[in-house]
Amino acid sequence: MINRSIANENIFKIQEEDTQNSFYGCNQEWYTTMWQRRAGCGPTVATNIVYYLNCTRKSSISDKRLWTKRKALLLMEEVYQYVKPTMRGIPTTKLFGDDVLKYAEAMKRTIQLEILDVPKGRKSRPLFQQLLMFLDQALGNDRPVAFLNLDNGEEKRLDSWHWVTIISMVYAEEDSRATIRILDDGYIKEIDLGQWFQTTALGGGFVSFDYVDEN
Rank of each mutant, 00 (worst) to 15 (best):
I2L: 14
F12I: 07
N21Y: 09
S22L: 15
S22Y: 12
Y24T: 05
G25R: 09
E29P: 02
W30L: 13
Q36E: 12
R37C: 09
P43N: 09
V50R: 05
V50M: 02
Y52D: 00
I61Y: 03
R65C: 07
R65Q: 14
W67E: 09
V79K: 04
Q81L: 13
R88A: 07
I90F: 09
P91A: 15
T92P: 11
G97V: 04
E105K: 15
R109Y: 02
R109N: 02
T110H: 03
Q112F: 06
L113D: 09
P119G: 12
G121P: 06
R122K: 15
K123F: 10
Q137N: 14
L139Q: 14
R143G: 08
P144L: 08
P144A: 11
A146N: 04
F147Q: 13
L150E: 05
N152I: 02
R157E: 13
S160R: 05
W161V: 04
H162M: 14
W163V: 01
T179F: 14
I180Y: 08
R181L: 03
R181Q: 03
R181N: 13
I182W: 07
G186L: 09
K189R: 15
I191N: 05
L193F: 03
W196G: 05
T199H: 01
A201P: 00
A201C: 01
L202W: 08
G204P: 01
G204N: 03
F209C: 03
D210F: 02
D210R: 03
V212P: 10
D213H: 06
